[in-house]
Amino acid sequence: MTPALSISHLTKRYRRGTLAVNDLSLDVKPGDFFGFLGPNGAGKSTTINCITGIASPTSGTIEVFGVDTVKRYRDARRLIGMSPQEFNVDTFARVYDIIDWMGGYFGMKAAERHARVEMLIEKFDLVAHAKKQFRDLSGGLKRRVILARSLVHDPQLLILDEPTAGVDVELRRDLWRYLQELNKEGKTIFLTSHYLEEIERLCQTIAIIYDGRIVRHGPKKEFVDEPGGLEAAYLRATGAEPDHAMVPA
């Protein structure tokens, strides 16, 4: 079975010399809800940027459903939807336009695009804000726009870089529900988050990246069944000692 995402010996060294990702290899099964964990600066966002084309890999290969993201980048990008950690938006643009333009970039015809944009605006409860400029929205609403934009072309692989950072509990739960729905429909989801509860609740497979390398990778069950659960497993994998109180005697 062709993996939804296959990363092989990915290395990314920035121009100033920082080695952000170091010989990273990883496979994500189609239909998986994949949690990608790691401390700040571990290489999560760099890995995502290499997958989506925002950064160029120094070496190694990345395939999305068997399509090489460098050699056949146009075909690969049609399969990926990306919601970045930081807002990369024309802040003066209107909400409707932001989502509509993204559909246009993906070559969607006007009728199909408008129907899809309207559906997403409704789904993410943005109807009252569709004509507002992005800069006039609250943090939570901005996050919804970014998510709607990532879904406009109905991607097979959805990459979410800390999608619930800074959003309120209500929206977080709405998003979780929606992401679970998408996953049930067969979409593969690649999620990074600092909220271990979120990863534990949503994901089927987990990988931990530390210092640019995958230090642990496996089914969620293996992590949560350990003494101290996912948090202790995460701390052990990233070189920190879990609290004694966390690990039962």
Binding site: G53, I54, Y73, I80, N88, V89, Y105, F106, G107, R149
Partner: peptide, 9 residues
């Protein structure tokens, strides 16, 4: 927002 075009086909 140049990233919007970089991630698109």
């Amino acid at each position: 927002y140049v990233e919007e075009s970089l991630v698109s086909p």
